[in-house]
Write a protein that binds this DNA or RNA. Structure first.
Lengths: 228, 228
DNA sequence: TCGTGCATTCTTGTCTGACAATCTTAGGAC
DNA sequence: GTCCTAAGATTGTCAGACAAGAATGCACGA
């Protein structure tokens, strides 16, 4: 179940390309929180038909990168404290299961190791956006390495929102650049040692730290807007 | 986060209604494994426009109730052994987290208790289809009671396939009708006792039993087709 | 006889244009 | 100032159309 080597060639579909482009703009904060995204606006910006824009919006909505209800326009969500906690609870559930399963085999996934190196470089050079990308890639690689298509799909369902919050609040900037890399290293070490409990433990600590940074940043941001 | 009491009135959207109808037909085995579902066929059967049918197909595909790749017709998937294992691994991950969280509060969700009663009735009267519905409702209620929107969405992503396999193989029929109810009762008891580990344990046992029944039935079915 | 290659046909991807239903917003009446 | 109504904006759905990719069957050659 592990050697599913498929070479992915770029999105050939117009909808795919549109979806990818908008996704990047949202997670990088280029389209800010609370911004409205109408079907006609997208269709106009990219010069595609409205149904195409509609399809892209629907896919983004499915991943939590947009919110919308019937007959209302899609907006980039603003995650409050409770939602960030919910997000990290869900994330913890999936990723704990993933690292435990990996530690049971004792194999450190190559993709995760590569992402780890990328994080170290990005941290050293203060390339914030790259660091976020690599961080997401690291966690995604861990889940993917389990070889469970459904686990990966569930992870995909929430990692978009994680990416979104990291891009918006840029909490990583607040952390000592090497902290994240060290926590990741501890997780990989536990996997290599074949210790599922330790791996889950290190992962839990890492995610709690990340969540803490995020909540702190969120608090500061709201203080700035409403200074008592 | 628990009192989100919204009354759901029938799907007002045409796409929603279509989606719901096809979903039911698939999970009940009315549309058999391997059956092809073209956009025009759906559009014709329900007398809707092709884009509407397309949207419904895409949503079903997202939930794993259909498989399709670009330019190819959607088909009702045939799950093999490996995929059923993957499905139950993913399911176990989510539901274990759910019952553990519930047991931490010690509150038995009312919806789950209701579904449990419905299962007992259905088992007594041998109403197979109701039994499956109630079983799905039981597990869904457990997850929903945690109050995590994202956990529920992830669960939704896989429970459709569970429903599908149960409808197709009708493995519940093979089980002593009361077995399922008893296993469920043990889970609820552990939650009520506020014992997270026991709850997870009972859930794991229950799901392993269910998976075992499914794999056995699958094996028998393939033996019938290819009798050595 | 069997395999290869081509053409037809089916199906999906995307577009244009349109109308109805619904939500939002602005303006007017009290 | 508040409430209600109406116009504008936005989405839901439809019809019809064309292009591109995939699948199928048939003829041809080895």
């Amino acid at each position: 179940m592990s050697t599913e080597a498929r070479l992915e060639l770029g999105p050939s579909s117009l909808t795919d390309a549109l979806y990818e482009s908008v996704r990047k703009r949202i997670v990088n904060g280029e389209i800010p929180q609370g911004e409205k995204l109408t079907e006609v606006r997208l269709a106009g910006e990219y010069n595609v038909a409205r149904p195409t824009a509609k399809a892209a919006l629907e896919r983004l909505t499915a991943l939590g990168l947009l919110r919308r209800t019937a007959h209302k326009t899609a907006v980039v969500p603003v995650l409050d404290q409770a939602e960030i906690r919910d997000l990290f609870f869900s994330r913890m559930t999936i990723e704990k299961a993933a690292v435990s399963a990996l530690a049971a085999t004792g194999e450190v996934p190559a993709d995760a190791a590569r992402a780890q190196v990328a994080i170290e470089y990005a941290a050293r050079d203060r390339l914030f956006e790259n660091q976020v990308e690599a961080d997401i890639a690291f966690h995604t690689a861990l889940v993917a390495a389990v070889g469970s298509r459904r686990l990966s799909r569930m992870h995909e369902l929430i990692i978009g929102e994680v990416h979104l919050t990291m891009g918006q609040y840029q909490a990583h900037r607040k952390a000592a650049p090497t902290t994240v890399a060290e926590e990741h290293a501890a997780i990989l070490k536990a996997i290599e040692d074949g210790n599922p409990d330790a791996a889950a433990e290190h992962l839990a600590y890492h995610l709690e730290q990340a969540q803490g940074r995020l909540l702190t940043t969120l608090q500061q941001a709201s203080d700035e807007v409403v200074p008592q």
